[in-house]
Design a protein around this nucleic acid. Structure first.
Lengths: 224, 224
DNA sequence: CATGCACAAAATGTATCCAATTATTCGGAC
DNA sequence: GTCCGAATAATTGGATACATTTTGTGCATG
């Protein structure tokens, strides 16, 4: 009975499936901190052998998502508010720099597309369509990330990691319409900084945008 | 015949020893790019079974230090000048921010110690004692890193990773006495920025210091 | 009653065996 | 002579059996 069929696990190896499965469960707070993660138990639940589970856990240990506690198995380490704060700080620094890298080489096409996303998000706010707001804001960020990935692949990887870790804390973005409005205002500033080709301004507005997101995230420790 | 006895591999597991052994060999350029790294062959050389070698290689793959090429085994990926440049860029951003974090909480003691290291490095230059220069400069950085680690553990980890990766490229720091002199001048600026408690200046001088180190590193691709 | 030592149980660490995947080579056909 | 295809060899992927380590519990002794 193969239980790993949750998402789009197509032609990936069992280890990769196991790794992603466990990582997602950890990042979404499915495993409470200090809960014992036993290889054989997890292997049984997932319908695979211990080998891929073990390799997945060791990879996750390297990422700091699980910690080995002697012979009591692995566990998700207890995270503190200081960790949370530091993660957002690093994210602000990295993404601020990423945006400043973008501003000197962004195409007119990309700028136009970004502007359209902002317009649609505002439309969503005015009409009270939360899905449209969420979708447009997500697309705005996704386009930026895509541009970063093509120009600075390693920087992109680091940013992606930081975002993953932060997933453990915030339930989802844009909880309130008020937060969505603030987010759109931030996007407008980002777009302006890009159009002005001002690296310093890019860095500033992106950092501010992320610290704003941190404030809106409201430190939901985790639940299920 | 246990061949893994190179360093201080004390009570670590065989996997951890294998992992560190391979990582060091890769980072110091012992494996030429595109050379085949076969699990069984490595296991034989190291006097261990395939299992720890395999897990070590998978962890290294996650770090991007090796890449799996179908059934031809793993290999160290060919790195480009663009990679090198990006690594230094990320390092500059991270360490620049780290220093700006330090400047508001650094103790008078630490400042005094840093100043002593600079004095001793200058003494080394004037007397032509390269060892003293190297030692003092290293201690200067080590103290800064130690302070960062205590205040921003995750940031410290990222910085450490970047430095490891860069190890693949430059043979060693401070090749020439001229580079050493430039480095000391940078350290003076760093100390000044710290004493002034100026976060922005801290970020600027540290970034400049790292870009200077990049220029002095002289892109030695690797050799053995 | 408390503390320390010893034994047992449980979980990871390691090794080996088998399966699946891929690259390379050899052969045949166009 | 070249290209395509099939077969074989080599390497990783996965599973299981065994060794090692650690923890937790229980009993005995002070």
């Amino acid at each position: 009975m193969t239980i790993i069929v949750g998402k789009n696990h197509g032609q990936l190896s069992v280890r990769e499936q196991t790794y992603r499965h466990l990582k997602e469960k950890i990042l979404t707070g499915h495993f409470p901190p200090d809960e014992r993660l036993v290889e054989e138990s997890l292997a049984g639940q997932l319908g695979v052998s211990r080998t891929p589970v073990r390799e997945a856990l060791h990879k996750l240990e390297l990422e700091g998502l699980v910690r080995l506690k002697g012979a009591r198995g692995f566990c998700v380490p207890e995270e503190t508010a200081a960790d949370m704060s530091e993660l957002f700080e690093i994210r602000a620094v990295l993404e601020g720099h990423a945006l400043s890298c973008l501003c000197n080489s962004i195409s007119e096409d990309s700028v136009r597309t970004l502007r359209e996303y902002i317009t649609r998000a505002e439309l969503g706010v005015s009409e009270g369509r939360r899905e449209l707001v969420f979708e447009s804001n997500t697309k705005f960020h996704d386009l930026l990330y895509q541009l970063v990935r093509s120009r600075r692949p390693r920087l992109f990887n680091l940013i992606e990691d930081m975002r993953d870790y932060i997933l453990r804390y915030r339930k989802d973005s844009l909880g309130t319409l008020e937060a969505a409005r603030r987010s759109i205002a931030g996007h407008k500033k980002i777009l302006l900084a890009l159009e002005l080709n001002d690296p310093v301004l890019c860095e500033q507005v992106m950092r501010a945008h992320i610290y704003e997101a941190e404030a809106d995230a409201a430190y939901l420790p985790r639940s299920g």
